[in-house]
């Protein structure tokens, strides 16, 4: 049996628009096994991003229980949560969100700097990921000098370089053409195999669902049990 990386039980999340309560998630539960490809699908506004934010420890649930890597998130203060994100969670954003003043190498290196990894070790690890993501030769390039596909590769390398237990990818192929999107998914599959990292995606793209180990469907903040690939 696969080890569980993320365990979410009966999580609710509400927002307030003025005095109106918006229930973004209603009693959502899911488990993410180690080294799996888990997809969360649903229409816009169904709560996919909210669920990913909670899994990524960048938002706090209104109620319910979230445990990542055996750590109960509700017991952590802001600094501990930051440290936990730095060590255990990788984020890949739809718009890549690279740091514009850092070049390709430095963007990938940044998460290791936050963990005070020694320079020699950093250099070895960053170069390993640059090679693995096919970005060799572009180390000095700024994000503005890269294509969409290259930027997403950098984002993947940056998310994986610290070897997290779980990587959350919010519609990672949405801003890429289908060929590049396919390459990116393929790259993430390789990474999953190589580093035994669990990936959780939110997506509209039915083409990539064929790679999924698990698929969860959200409808108006409620989790449906199954999805037909």
């Amino acid at each position: 049996m696969l080890e569980t990386v993320a365990n979410i039980q009966k999580v609710c999340k509400s927002y307030y628009l003025g005095k109106v309560e918006i229930k973004a998630l209603k009693q959502v539960s899911l488990q993410v096994p180690s080294g799996s490809f888990t997809f969360i699908v649903g229409k816009s506004g169904s709560g996919k991003s909210t669920l990913l934010n909670l899994l990524g420890a960048i938002d706090i649930p209104t109620s319910g229980y979230i445990e990542i890597n055996g750590v109960k998130l509700s017991g952590l203060n802001d600094n501990s949560l930051s440290d936990f994100r730095g060590e255990s969670i990788g984020h890949i954003f739809q718009n890549f969100n690279l740091i514009p003043v850092l070049n390709l190498y430095e963007n990938i290196e940044y998460p290791l700097l936050l963990q005070n990894i020694p320079k020699k070790e950093r250099k070895f690890t960053v170069n390993e990921f640059i090679e693995a993501t096919g970005l060799s030769g572009l180390e000095k390039h700024l994000p503005s000098e890269l294509s969409g596909g290259q930027m997403q590769r950098v984002a993947i390398a940056r998310a994986l370089v610290k070897k997290p237990s779980i990587v959350l990818a919010d519609e990672p192929t949405a801003n890429l053409d289908s060929v590049t999107g396919g390459e990116i998914i393929s790259l993430m599959l390789d990474m999953k195999k190589q580093y035994r990292t669990a990936f959780v995606f939110s997506t509209h793209d039915k083409e990539i669902l064929k790679e999924a180990d698990d698929i969860y469907t959200l409808v108006d903040g409620t989790m449906e049990d199954s999805y037909d690939k």
């Binding site: 802001d78 930051s82 994100r85 984020h91 954003f93 969100n97 936050l114 963990q115």
Partner: peptide, 16 residues
């Protein structure tokens, strides 16, 4: 703002 959010999601503390 977006960059700040990205850095925080990568583990940068508020003080950082």
């Amino acid at each position: 703002y977006k960059e700040i959010g990205t850095l925080r999601s990568m583990g940068l503390r508020r003080w950082g």
